[in-house]
């Protein structure tokens, strides 16, 4: 009941946004019926909704390749809804696995390496040019390099995501440490704290809020990285499904998968926000932030 009332209040306040969403949905449908249909293509250029959730959806069962639970169209089996769902779940799971493992590994490695490099300000200055180059080197253009090193495997995708995320955290950590007010450290040193103690008790807590500000950035980046890796190399995952569909200009399937990825991305951002709120609850709100 409360949820419905809240929705009602939200709609009354944001009715223009609601209208825009409806206009987008309706406009897409109209464009789908107006857009030229090439006889060569199985799918109209702008696939209408009934096409996306009809033929395109069952068509996804083409990507189910295990002879179990549902017929395999590649071997002459029929296209089934079950097969489509299985294919979606299978490839989504792979992508989400790569994304999560890459994020965690990259985050850990980046922060630890960043702390190590921040041991002294001289080291920091010495590694600065390399870090700058690592950040400026276009990540997505490096996919073939990772394919070359790690093959078209799960690991190539994971390491690639981890690299992209790791560079951000590494630079974030180094900058955050450099930004810790010197008076904290001086104060601790006057009190006789050892270097390790200073790192553990002062620097690490002080940089946490700043590090968390990189979380959203890296999440978006990780999504791009994992999809990119699946576009170019790894022959599985939800990103690869887009390419398979694109190969036959199958826009209906592409649109469907895009919607699925949109849902995942939104969910992952929402989850991240929840997590951040919980972890950073103790920090005072920055003015203006």
């Amino acid at each position: 009941m409360g949820a419905i009332r809240r929705l009602g209040a939200g709609l009354r306040r944001d009715w223009i946004s609601a209208m825009v969403v409806i206009a987008l949905i309706v406009g897409w449908e109209i464009a789908g019926h107006m857009a030229p249909r090439s006889p060569l293509r199985e799918s109209p250029i702008v696939p209408p909704w009934e096409f996306i959730f009809g033929r395109a959806l069952t068509g996804l069962s083409d990507y189910w390749k295990i002879e179990m639970w549902a017929p395999v169209p590649q071997l002459g089996g029929a296209q089934t809804l079950l097969g489509a769902v299985l294919a979606l779940v299978f490839h989504s799971a792979l992508t989400l696995f790569r994304l999560t493992v890459g994020l965690v590994l990259g985050g850990l490695a980046g922060v630890l390496l960043g702390l190590a490099l921040s041991w002294s300000s001289r080291v920091r200055k010495l590694v600065a040019p390399s870090l700058h180059l690592a950040r400026m080197c276009p990540l997505l253009a490096m996919i073939p390099l990772f394919q070359f090193w790690f093959g078209a495997t799960n690991w190539a995708a994971i390491v690639f995501v981890a690299y992209g995320v790791g560079v951000i955290y590494l630079i974030g950590t180094v900058n955050a440490v450099a930004n810790v007010p010197a008076r904290y450290i001086e104060n601790a040193r006057v009190l006789g704290a050892s270097r390790l103690r200073i790192h553990r008790s002062i620097i690490l807590p002080a940089i946490l809020p700043e590090l968390f500000s990189s979380v959203f950035l890296t999440l978006g980046l990780a999504w791009s990285a994992v999809i990119g890796a699946e576009y170019i190399g790894v022959e599985s995952g939800i990103g690869r499904m887009v390419i398979w569909s694109e190969y036959f200009s199958n826009t209906g399937r592409m649109a469907l998968i895009t919607l699925v990825i949109l849902a995942y991305a939104m969910a992952s951002f929402a989850l991240c926000r929840k997590l951040q709120e919980r972890v950073l609850a103790w920090t005072p709100k920055r003015p203006g932030a």
């Binding site: 825009v20 887009v242 694109e246 949109l262």
Partner: peptide
């Protein structure tokens, strides 16, 4: 008004990895 019009569009374009849209652009 502008805020309300742009918000859903930005929310969609801002969360969907822009790369996913690339094949659409190549076709369109």
């Amino acid at each position: 008004v502008i805020h309300q019009i742009t918000r859903p569009i930005v929310a969609i374009l801002g969360t969907v990895p822009i790369l996913v849209a690339a094949p659409f652009f190549l076709i369109w």
